[in-house]
């Protein structure tokens, strides 16, 4: 086991991927708790589709993927947030509209320029080779920002998530906090997308929160638990993908599903025992 790990980490690209992945999954899990509880899970999904579109365009223009993706996805995050705040039902449909729309634009741009090749597959389902040195620096910075924001405004995030009207009435700038969460989510998604895949990145946001909610009863516990679950699942997923030569993104998602089922059945057992 240790030999395998040692061998794994002798590759620079893998070390980079693991560092970026661990930090991205930590951020995604923290933001995910709030997003899932506010019924905003779809925003994460919508954003990753927009991210796919921007990746395709960036490749076509020969530009650095991050410089194109970050501003566009951040813009999309504000737009999606505005849509979901205004009306719940229409917001759902509007997110689907934007998701499929940007997917279509991405596919079209790719087929007009490089043609449908392995690049497309990598964008959609992720590639562990995609992480550059720049990404490592960026993800460390992002992780520090997310952690700092989370710790410093934890109580306000709790209030905004639990009861937005009350928080607003208490003088908390709820709009600003929603924006902040959307902004950080957009950054997390753009960073993690090329490794996890545009189709799979939103699982990092949704799964850990749902998993820890099976067992944890307190908001603080849910937050801490999902951060830990997310990081562990990612690591196990990467190791599995190295040993079995499976796609990284899919492996991580599968590990997350297993964790979810595990937590769910433990909860069932607990309820059974109490009766």
């Amino acid at each position: 086991m240790f030999d395998t790990l040692a061998e794994m980490f002798s590759y620079t690209f893998l070390v980079r991927a693991v560092v970026v992945g661990l930090l991205v999954s930590l951020c995604a899990a923290l933001l995910g708790v709030s997003l899932v509880l506010k019924r905003y899970s779809m925003i994460g999904d919508g954003l990753s589709h927009v991210g796919f579109g921007t990746l395709a365009i960036a490749t076509a223009m020969n530009a650095a993927p991050l410089t194109v993706s970050i501003p566009v996805v951040v813009l999309a995050a504000f737009l999606l947030l505005r849509i979901s705040e205004n009306s719940k039902i229409k917001g759902d449909a509007a997110i689907a509209l934007i998701s499929t729309g940007s997917l279509a634009v991405g596919v079209l741009v790719i087929s007009l320029t490089t043609g449908m090749n392995t690049d497309v597959c990598n964008y959609l389902f992720g590639s562990i080779l995609a992480m550059s040195k720049e990404d490592v620096t960026l993800s460390i910075a992002l992780a520090i920002i997310v952690l700092a924001v989370f710790v410093l405004s934890y109580n306000k995030i709790f209030a905004v998530t639990f009861d937005e009207n009350f928080a607003k009435a208490s003088g908390v700038k709820t709009g600003a906090y929603n924006m902040l969460i959307a902004l950080l989510t957009a950054l997390t998604i753009v960073l993690g997308m090329r490794m996890m895949g545009a189709m799979l990145i939103s699982s990092l946001i949704i799964f850990p929160a749902l998993t820890s909610m099976r067992l944890c009863k307190r908001f603080k516990a849910v937050t801490i638990c999902s951060a830990i679950v997310s990081v562990i699942c990612f690591f196990i997923g990467v190791v599995i993908s190295y040993i079995g030569a499976t796609p990284t993104g899919a492996s991580v998602v599968i590990v997350n599903i297993i964790a979810f089922l595990l937590f769910w059945s433990v909860n069932l057992l607990k309820v059974r025992v109490r009766k």
Binding site: N155, F158, A159, F162, D163, F166, V172, K217, R218, K220
Partner: peptide, 13 residues
Amino acid sequence: PASAYEVVVSGRL
């Protein structure tokens, strides 16, 4: 998922 205490103390915000 929040404890009763967590909800109450958020009133101090």
